[in-house]
Amino acid sequence: MEVRTIKVFTTVDNINLHTQVVDMSMTYGQQFGPTYLDGADVTKIKPHNSHEGKTFYVLPNDDTLRVEAFEYYHTTDPSFLGRYMSALNHTKKWKYPQVNGLTSIKWADNNCYLATALLTLQQIELKFNPPALQDAYYRARAGEAANFCALILAYCNKTVGELGDVRETMSYLFQHANLDSCKRVLNVVCKTCGQQQTTLKGVEAVMYMGTLSYEQFKKGVQIPCTCGKQATKYLVQQESPFVMMSAPPAQYELKHGTFTCASEYTGNYQCGHYKHITSKETLYCIDGALLTKSSEYKGPITDVFYKENSYTTTIK
Rank of each mutant, 00 (worst) to 15 (best):
F9A: 08
T10C: 14
T11P: 01
V12Q: 11
D13M: 00
D13V: 00
N14R: 14
T19H: 13
T19K: 14
T19L: 13
T19F: 13
Q20E: 12
V22L: 08
V22D: 00
V22E: 00
D23S: 08
S25C: 15
S25H: 14
F32G: 03
F32R: 00
G33P: 06
P34W: 09
Y36I: 00
L37G: 05
L37A: 11
D38F: 10
G39L: 04
G39I: 03
D41T: 09
V42E: 04
I45W: 15
I45F: 11
H48A: 11
H51Y: 04
T55A: 13
Y57C: 07
P60H: 05
N61Q: 08
D63P: 13
L65H: 10
L65P: 07
R66M: 11
V67P: 08
E68V: 08
F70Y: 00
E71W: 04
Y73N: 00
H74G: 09
T75F: 05
T76D: 10
D77C: 04
P78T: 10
L81C: 06
L81G: 03
R83A: 05
Y84L: 03
A87N: 10
L88I: 08
L88T: 02
N89W: 15
N89F: 15
T91R: 00
W94P: 00
W94M: 01
W94L: 03
Y96A: 02
Y96V: 01
Y96I: 02
P97K: 05
Q98Y: 06
V99K: 01
N100W: 08
G101N: 07
L102Q: 08
T103L: 02
T103I: 15
S104A: 04
S104H: 01
I105T: 01
K106S: 13
K106P: 02
W107K: 13
N111P: 05
Y113P: 02
A115G: 09
A117F: 00
T120A: 06
L121W: 01
Q123F: 03
P130E: 03
P131K: 05
A132Y: 03
A132I: 01
L133G: 00
Q134K: 11
D135Y: 07
A136L: 01
Y138W: 09
Y138D: 14
R139K: 13
R139Q: 15
R139F: 15
A140K: 03
A140F: 07
R141Q: 14
E144A: 06
E144M: 11
E144W: 04
E144R: 07
A146H: 06
N147P: 15
N147D: 12
F148P: 02
C149I: 12
C149E: 00
A150P: 01
L151I: 01
L153P: 03
C156Y: 00
N157C: 10
K158D: 05
V160I: 14
G161P: 02
G161K: 02
R167T: 14
R167P: 04
E168R: 07
E168I: 05
E168H: 08
T169E: 00
M170P: 01
L173G: 00
F174Q: 01
A177E: 02
A177D: 01
L179H: 07
L179E: 03
D180C: 09
S181Q: 11
K183E: 10
K183F: 09
V185N: 04
L186R: 04
L186E: 07
N187Q: 10
V188W: 15
C190P: 02
T192L: 08
C193P: 02
Q195S: 14
Q195M: 14
Q197I: 15
L200S: 09
L200A: 13
L200V: 12
G202D: 06
G202E: 02
E204N: 06
E204T: 05
E204Y: 05
A205G: 04
Y208K: 02
T211C: 11
L212K: 07
L212N: 06
S213M: 05
S213E: 01
Y214H: 06
E215I: 04
Q216R: 11
Q216N: 10
Q216V: 09
F217L: 12
G220N: 04
G220S: 05
G220K: 04
V221E: 09
Q222N: 15
Q222M: 11
I223K: 05
P224M: 15
C225E: 01
G228N: 05
K229D: 14
K229T: 05
A231D: 04
K233E: 13
K233M: 10
K233W: 08
Y234C: 08
S240M: 03
P241R: 06
P241D: 13
F242H: 05
M245T: 06
P248M: 07
P248I: 14
A250P: 03
Q251H: 11
Y252A: 07
Y252D: 08
Y252H: 08
L254F: 05
H256V: 12
G257C: 03
T258L: 07
F259T: 05
A262I: 03
A262T: 00
A262D: 03
E264Q: 04
Y265A: 08
Y269A: 15
G272M: 05
G272D: 03
G272Y: 11
G272V: 09
H273I: 00
H276E: 05
H276L: 00
I277E: 04
T278V: 14
E281G: 08
T282D: 11
Y284I: 14
C285T: 07
L291P: 08
L291D: 07
K293S: 12
K298A: 12
T302V: 10
V304P: 07
E308L: 14
E308C: 14
N309W: 10
T313R: 08
T313D: 08
T314F: 08
T314A: 12
I315T: 15
